[in-house]
Design a protein around this nucleic acid. Structure first.
Lengths: 224, 224
DNA sequence: GGCCGCATGTGTACTTTGTACGCTTATCAA
DNA sequence: TTGATAAGCGTACAAAGTACACATGCGGCC
């Protein structure tokens, strides 16, 4: 009774595809996609690098699996909710997923082998819009707009990891430093008066644009 | 008079930072960012890999330089044009730049050392909005919305490089093949009835969303 | 002319990465 | 007991970034 203890949960049940994928996601979350090397994941699992290949076929297959897990994390309100509520909830949830897993932003919509969660997700969103009265062309418009905005928001708000205003100011200093003073007055004003002001809220900025888009779509739907 | 010919243009004037950067951009355009290796760029220039390092300090520095060239490619109508026209032109131009240089989509807004074209560009856009009457908060909303949408559009439209409908159908087949038939009916309908229909236009889809956003901003500006 | 210094290109070599291949070991059915 | 199967591993190699020291040719100065 050394390695295989009884029927109770084994403290280290050995590798599995799921365990590898979960560990890889956690590692990418905290260290980024570049740090997601086979050796590092193996190290976290206290296993030799080549052992991973019993459960995934290669690094790309691993990433495919990671992405499909993320699609499963997106909230999909499918009940009787109004389409606007449903799309708003989905977009906010997607933004949160992308904020938690920044490494995934460029990968979610470019997989050549979409997994089941991926396809199920898109199927559900399209179904919701169709049943709310969107014709096929309007579904395309709406989905394109909402996804572009949401992914793009996550992409462009590289979310500066600064705690204090001082750190931020130092960073801004560094950026402008190689150039003549007042070479970029509008940008300087914007940075000083807006970005660096406390109270700037990531979520509010996202939802401002989201609501503008949803309202526009609602009008378009009425005149469809 | 073998290597250094006369005053006329030398057929191979030797390396320069600009030449390295231009060659790298062309190579990334046609082969993608993964294929952008020092050895490949050196090969295109018929030069030893290490020679590149006389003109760039490392791969990241090279990418910084490449990105700044792209910022210079974005059209900036700064004259007396209405802000809506100016923003529309800029967004379309940015989309075109990103379509030509897809490898750059995730890099444009995350450079730690923005170059002069980058800063000049942002300065000009902000200046245009400010002088059109946007207050600082509205500038943030507008810029965030327009950039998120434009970058996101480029990102999510991974622009399937298919010439024929047949190729497209084969691709769709491959995607659905591992799953039970009719598992994703809404998605299947959407793909069949919309994406695969000829006449689907990349540009029109972008501009639909762009105009919806610009109209929303115009309303918001009026009630600012 | 003869010399020197600098800028530019290069060869070699080391590190980090993905992963092919074949060996070892543990488990379990017959 | 035996042999099959799955799981983990050690070794090794190719591709990539790049440090370092050397080569080479051009310019200016005496």
């Amino acid at each position: 009774m050394s390695t295989t203890a009884g029927k109770h949960e084994d403290p280290r049940p050995g590798l599995s595809r799921q365990l590898v994928v979960q560990t890889a996601i956690q590692h990418a979350d905290s260290a980024g996609l570049d740090a997601l090397t086979m050796r590092q994941v193996a190290g976290l699992l206290q296993v030799a690098p080549m052992s991973l290949y019993r459960h995934i076929s290669n690094r790309d297959d691993l990433i495919d699996a990671m992405i499909d897990v993320l699609f499963g994390e997106i909230a999909l309100p499918l009940g009787s909710a109004h389409w606007k509520t449903a799309m708003r909830t989905r977009a906010v949830s997607l933004r949160n997923v992308l904020a938690r897993h920044r490494w995934a932003i460029g990968l979610m919509e470019s997989r050549r082998r979409p997994g089941p969660s991926n396809l199920r997700h898109h199927d559900a969103v399209i179904g919701k819009l169709r049943s709310a009265g969107f014709d096929i062309g309007m579904v395309a418009h709406a989905y394109s707009l909402l996804d572009a905005y949401t992914y793009g928001y996550a992409l462009t708000k590289v979310n500066i990891p600064f705690e204090t205003t001082d750190e931020m100011a130092a960073m801004a200093q560094d950026m402008f430093e190689p150039f003549p003073a007042n070479e970029y007055p509008n940008l300087a004003e914007f940075v000083t008066d807006h970005v660096m002001k406390p109270g700037y809220d990531y979520g509010e900025e996202f939802e401002y644009g989201l609501d503008l888009i949803l309202n526009g779509l609602e009008e378009a739907l009425a005149g469809q």
